[in-house]
Design a protein around this nucleic acid. Sequence first.
RNA 1: GGCUCUGUAGCUCAACUGGAUAGAGCACCUCACUACGGAUGAGGAGGUUUGGGGUUCGAAUCCCUACAGGGUCACCA
Length: 597
Amino acid sequence: MIHVLDSRLHDAVLDTFEATFGKRPSDAQIQIQSTRAEFEGDRTVVVFPLAGLAGAPPHVAAEKLGEALVASQDWISAYSVVKGFLNLTLTDASWSETLREALASPAWGFATPGSQPQVMVEYSSPNTNKPLHLGHLRNNFLGYSVSRILEAAGHDVVKVQIINDRGIHICKSMVAWQKLGNGETPATTGEKGDKLVGRYYVAFDKAFKAEVAEGVARGLEPKEAESASPIMQEARAMLQRWEDGDTEVVELWKTMNGWVYDGFNATYNDMGVRFDKLYYESDTYLLGKKHVEDGLSRGIFFQKEDGSIWVDLTDDGLDEKLLLRGDGTAVYMTQDIGTAILRFDDFAGLDRQVYTVGNEQEYHFKVLFLILKKLGFAQADKNHHLSYGMVELPEGKMKSREGTVVDADDLLLEMRTTARAISDELGKVDDFAEVEKALLARQVGHGALKYFLLKVAPAKSMMFDPKSSIDFFGNTAPFIQFNVVRCKSILRSAEVDASTLTWSNDTTLDDAERTLAAGVLAFPSVVREAAATYDPSVVANHCYDLIKAFSSFYQDHPIAKEENADVRNLRLALCAAVSTTVSNGMSLLGIDMPERM
RNA sequence: GGCUCUGUAGCUCAACUGGAUAGAGCACCUCACUACGGAUGAGGAGGUUUGGGGUUCGAAUCCCUACAGGGUCACCA
């Protein structure tokens, strides 16, 4: 990662190298990294790439460069050379100055809002027939966190989801409810709406399978038995009536979808994620059809005898892809084309669109983006699929049929319960009112879960073991929260305002203190890197590394108890800066820091 | 089979995008401490980075190849 001081160092190396060797390296040839703990120094210039340009062996070039840097830069106090590595020690004063800079900014690490173009981030977008599960938690936490990170990098972010509210699957739940529901509602049963509707979707599937089995027993081929199934025929008939705008069907559709949305919203609220705008497939599929027909008339797509419309992507190494069925009804791709174009129309200043969708849909998005390009859509290149790996269980993939689905609501509740139990046992917040205890359990329990899912790089599939559950110790959110709380406690009892602390520039920083200062000062570039790669895990890991360094520092460094006023204030300043930095970083993961725990 | 992602300590994950002796947590074994908040710290053990080639000052990282696993190639969404 690039240190804030490194941009200054970068320029100094460029100029000094040119002055010393008469040639100017390219930016890419200047490599700066933090010095490994076992060597003397703070920052390291990797001289290997510069040796050729200098016309000298790496260690000789490093020696000359180091000498010149110390002579010309008053903020570099010493250098040492190990092979082709030039290790530089920065002055205490330069650390103090940059630390003051960090302290002066409560939004440390965050760019000026709106200084970067507008970006849209889509996430969640669940199937309305199934309650949210563990996989959705990773999706939502990831999408929300990436939104926060992009905001922190200065972008104006529009958070959206597409709600898949039409199609045969919706009709299945509706039919099953009509036949078996006896008019029950979330209000009469007290059940969450998404769970209730999901139950009827399962009931449909069960009835359908029974009818197919019966048909096969009568001697039908499996395919015949499926189409002969009376309940499936009812579902198809209902879809037809829905597309015709049948009042009764549309009313039922609205009612049952309303139950699902209420249920989902409760879970979103629980998760702490939000959306700025919702898109509904029922609103965008007609638009998609229009673009497909338009593409057909322009000769970009082609039609088969049955009337279905296709795109030929064989020249691009892909297959032919269906865009519209023979009967004129839309497929998944149809509505996605419509949605993509609609969004750029809705937001004129939109510079980029990010789709947070699992990696099983990589092919779909590759095709979608290619189609947009073929249509000549101006913003075709401004789409990005933020692909992430599946969350796997020890037994393998989650299978609803085998009852191995980890329900989102259940898991969130379990996390809160566990956090509460630990908190009660430790007994440090016995004076809290019940609401405060509940809030704390949520901050710690949900924080642990979010951190667990976000600390892994998105592209990787990850393992979740429900039996061993989630840790609250080690590399976890509760550990980070605990140390931030400890920082706050120290500052509180010292009764100081961190922004007014003063200390002499001559005050020396030891290794532990320099490590903390370096971690604070690196944070802004960590945020930039996370935004550039859509990767919250770099923020998570930075927060952990920094707070772990603090925890170690805390053991053998008196802070408020330190008697030397300069050292004391410097340490309090470090304490405050670490606390702010880590709090800001964790907020980008959607994780709150309590005052006490 | 084509395309694609992945393979790092017993387990779960890192490694500043090609840099120094590959690091953390969990589990295991020592040790420290009535603590400015112990949900702690220090240490030990644990590795041929799946195997084999190649590229160069230098490879977990890039290329080739073999093997293993996931995903995808639907008139499902």
